[in-house]
Design a binder for these strands. Structure first.
Ligand code: FES
Ligand code: FES
Lengths: 152, 152
DNA sequence: AAGAAAACAGATAAAAACATCTTTTTTGTA
DNA sequence: TACAAAAAAGATGTTTTTATCTGTTTTCTT
């Protein structure tokens, strides 16, 4: 459903949301290692996210990526649209040209409620709120250390 | 989530399940037109499905594709595994190496119930039963004539 | 000022998915 | 038996996604 690129992007931003701030920047190398993603690919991705103001960065020694307070006011949905475009969730699960309640495909009654739920999750909360909820639950963004979120 | 190929395959088989039998074969051309899919691509796909005994066919004039009674005893899941492999629904929505209740990603609580439902739908019913249910509801498999299933 | 660390930019490459084209084989029908 | 219709098979082409590589620019530290 989501491209690899988009999955990497979401997890990176959640990672940065948890572990970084403007006094605590993190390099691609570290992020790629923690999330177990291909490093050069992630670098490109972070560049794009930076250009789109979804992530912040500084060059030079002790530079790296971080999420500014402003960045944290975005929603997951902003990441998705930036990487995969906004039509990803409009598509019919079985490939009909249009997905609509009026002319439902055979699995529409299952997929439609799912899409609605996950879209609400992605659109309605800021990264800040989203992350805050993660911290209070037992969710993980990497298998490498799957208590990453419980360390705080 | 499902590849184009797999979506075409499912819709083709449902189409054949409704409109064909061994005395009423349908050619690729007709199927591709009705489902609005690329014709040569669908031809290849139907060949593969035939080799895998998910679809039946005969060559020559008045030949074409159809579903035998045996073919209709398969499940949608058999199509999915044949085209996309069996791991499609095991994967984590955010790209974690493993999707499991024990170490859930931030959207696992939404995606897991969805997967469970759709897998049940795909695994537990035969094509025959699946199609019978479609006929009794208002579901469509093509926008071309979106009352296709109501014509019976 | 020199050097190093880091992001940035642009080019390139590899793989997978998607799609088409050409030829062959089978089989019903005139 | 000749012909035509249709699937089958195999080769080829295109696009998208994923990934890497090489060099440049910025900026901190010494
Ligand atoms: S119409 Fe197929 S998923 Fe909505
Ligand atoms: S762990 Fe991510 S979807 Fe299950």
């Amino acid at each position: 459903m989501l491209s690899n690129a988009c999955q990497y992007a979401i997890r990176s931003i959640l990672y940065l949301s948890i572990y970084s701030d403007k006094d605590n920047k993190i390099g691609v190398k570290k992020i790629a290692e923690e999330l177990e993603t291909p490093q050069p690919f992630l670098a490109k991705l972070l560049q794009q996210l930076t250009r789109s103001d979804l992530v912040s960065s500084t060059k030079g020694p002790n530079g790296g990526f971080f999420l500014s307070t402003a960045n944290k006011q975005n929603a997951i949905w902003d990441i998705v649209t930036n990487i995969d475009g906004s039509e990803k969730f409009d598509q019919c699960f079985l490939g009909l040209a249009r997905c609509e309640d009026k002319n439902p495909c055979p699995v529409h009654h299952i997929t439609a409620p799912f899409k609605k739920k996950i879209l609400a999750d992605f659109k309605d909360k800021t990264i800040a709120v989203f992350t805050e909820e993660l911290k209070n639950s037992r969710k993980i963004i990497s298998l490498k250390e799957f208590d990453a979120l419980q360390q705080n």
